[in-house]
């Protein structure tokens, strides 16, 4: 058996696929945007050569599919060339979405952990709540998003909190399910040992159940943080919100600003990747502190 190497097993295959995708993207750009160029040329009554089509399709104002470099230029422009407080800055919109995401994620994770502790320690709660928690995963919760926003707006609560509530709602369930599993993960033999030490249930909880639930907690936190970002973005759609990545998507789709949509999309993807990575780092740090072998 060969030792796994970073270059051969990670960078090379992933890099090849990414390059391939970018190449396909460029071909698709020419293919999808060409009809518009032909139309324009036809209306002007001029012949257009293939090389001209290729050149023009890369730099359209409102292309069907913007070329990757256009998207990157747009991201660069709206990230670094605009003041952060300006409404045209992508950083500003990303921050609006991020703050709602983090607030919702925080509340959702805290609530989820509390509920999981309740479920593990109370049999009635376990039997009555768990089936509903699991069933609630099968319903399209995001459909509730517009209503929460509008109804809370009607009561006079607007801004950050309604969006955060949607994120809370979404991130809450994975945490409950993961934590219940985690808090139950100690084996009978370990629980028996705690029993022979005459440990109180609080001691058993803090010294055995809580530490052994950590891997489960972080795994579900990764899912939760990704889904709370989705919640915050969808939460920005229905109100015609003026700020946030979701609002950028919506405005872009109203005015046909495809480059803007793709830029917002890439920003959202980067945000999701960074959030998941941060939770991942916290995961390894906590496990290392607890003495786990890598």
């Amino acid at each position: 058996m060969q030792e796994p190497s970073f270059l051969r097993d990670k960078l090379l295959p992933v890099g090849t696929i990414v390059l391939l995708l970018i190449a396909i993207w460029y071909v698709a750009v020419v293919f999808l945007n060409a009809p518009f160029e032909r139309d324009t040329a036809g209306r002007a009554g001029t012949e257009i050569s293939f090389s001209e089509i290729v050149r023009n399709t890369m730099a359209q104002e409102r292309p069907v599919l913007p070329a990757p470099h256009q998207v990157i230029a747009e991201i660069w422009d709206t990230t670094f060339n605009k003041a952060i407080t300006s409404k045209r800055s992508l950083v500003y919109h990303a921050w609006i979405t991020l703050s709602a995401t983090l607030l919702g994620f925080g509340i959702g994770a805290a609530l989820g952990i509390l509920l999981a502790v309740g479920i593990v320690h109370n049999r009635a709660m376990d039997r009555s709540l768990m089936p509903w928690v699991i069933a609630s995963q099968t319903i399209p919760i995001l459909a509730v998003a517009p209503m929460i926003i509008v109804v809370l707006n009607a009561v006079g609560i607007s801004g950050l909190l309604p969006k955060a509530l949607i994120s809370t709602y979404l991130s809450f369930f994975p945490v409950v399910v993961g934590m219940v599993k985690g808090l139950r993960s100690p084996e009978t033999i370990q629980l028996d040992l705690m029993h022979t030490y005459n440990a109180s249930s609080a001691q058993t909880f803090w010294k055995l159940r809580w530490p052994s639930s950590m891997p489960y907690l972080f795994t579900s936190l990764k899912v939760a943080v990704a889904i709370s970002l989705v919640g915050a973005i969808v939460g920005e759609l229905p109100t015609g919100a003026v700020a946030g990545l979701g609002a950028r998507l919506l405005a872009g789709s109203y005015y046909g600003q495809t480059v803007q949509i793709w830029a917002a999309l890439f920003m959202a993807a980067a945000l999701a990747a960074v959030l998941v990575m941060i939770v991942g780092f916290a995961h390894t740090a906590v496990l290392k502190r607890m003495g786990a072998k890598p």
């Binding site: 090849t16 949509i261 999701a272």
Partner: peptide, 25 residues
């Protein structure tokens, strides 16, 4: 195996993204 090694990390990565954002496009 080469394609698998290339596609799997990407697939895992994409499932963490807010894919729903492609809806307007």
């Amino acid at each position: 195996p080469f394609l698998q090694k290339g596609l799997l990390p990407l697939g895992n990565f994409v499932s963490a993204l807010p894919v729903i954002g492609v809806a307007p496009i």
